[in-house]
């Protein structure tokens, strides 16, 4: 079976495949690295505040709806709220129907444009939920059960 000197054909093929896969992975890593900012689906508030997208340019803004920030105007369909990412905050205005998962303290992606005055005018709101899955009946549990569920479901 063993050939003195020189590689066996199957080892040659293996080396070739390994080299090809390494090159491919490197190319993919470089490509995704280059795409890092372009391939992102939205900008977070700190990027918006830092880079100031031109007023009127269509962008997506994503972040957390700040607790206590949702205000409904007298017309009943226009809402104002603040999207934050922990470092920066952007005020947003939106008129229209709101998805059911759009709530304070949860994620949101808003499509629209910045105004010169720093307010983001949204044409479309998408709700973004996090990776935590918690039963709704948590409220009806005993304190001990609740503590157990919270313990096993806090990821960070």
């Amino acid at each position: 079976m063993s050939e003195r000197g020189g590689l066996q054909p199957k080892h040659q093929r293996l080396a070739l495949v390994v080299a090809a896969v390494v090159a491919l992975v490197a190319a993919a890593i470089i490509a995704t690295w280059a795409l890092r900012s372009q391939a992102s689906y939205f900008y977070v508030p700190s990027e918006i505040v830092k880079d100031h997208p031109a007023p009127g340019r269509a962008v997506r803004l994503g972040g957390m709806v700040e607790k206590g920030s949702i205000l409904t105007r007298p017309d009943g369909v226009t809402i104002d709220f603040v999207v934050g990412d922990g470092t920066a905050r952007v005020p947003v205005r939106y008129s229209g129907i709101v998805p059911d998962l759009f709530v304070e303290g949860s994620g949101v992606v808003a499509e629209g444009r910045m105004q010169a005055n720093g307010t983001f005018i949204a044409d479309k709101l998408l709700a973004k939920h996090d990776e935590n899955y918690v039963p709704r009946e948590l409220k009806e549990m005993t304190a001990a059960q609740k503590k157990l569920v919270v313990e096993e479901t806090t990821a960070k």
């Binding site: 995704t32 992102s40 998408l126 939920h129 990776e131 899955y133 918690v134 990821a155």
Partner: peptide, 20 residues
């Protein structure tokens, strides 16, 4: 890698963000 509308995985090594 990218900001996404999809949430990150609920399971990572030894941790779970999902109720039993």
């Amino acid at each position: 890698w990218w900001y996404s509308i999809h949430q990150p995985p609920s399971f990572s090594l030894g941790k779970s963000a999902m109720a039993t």
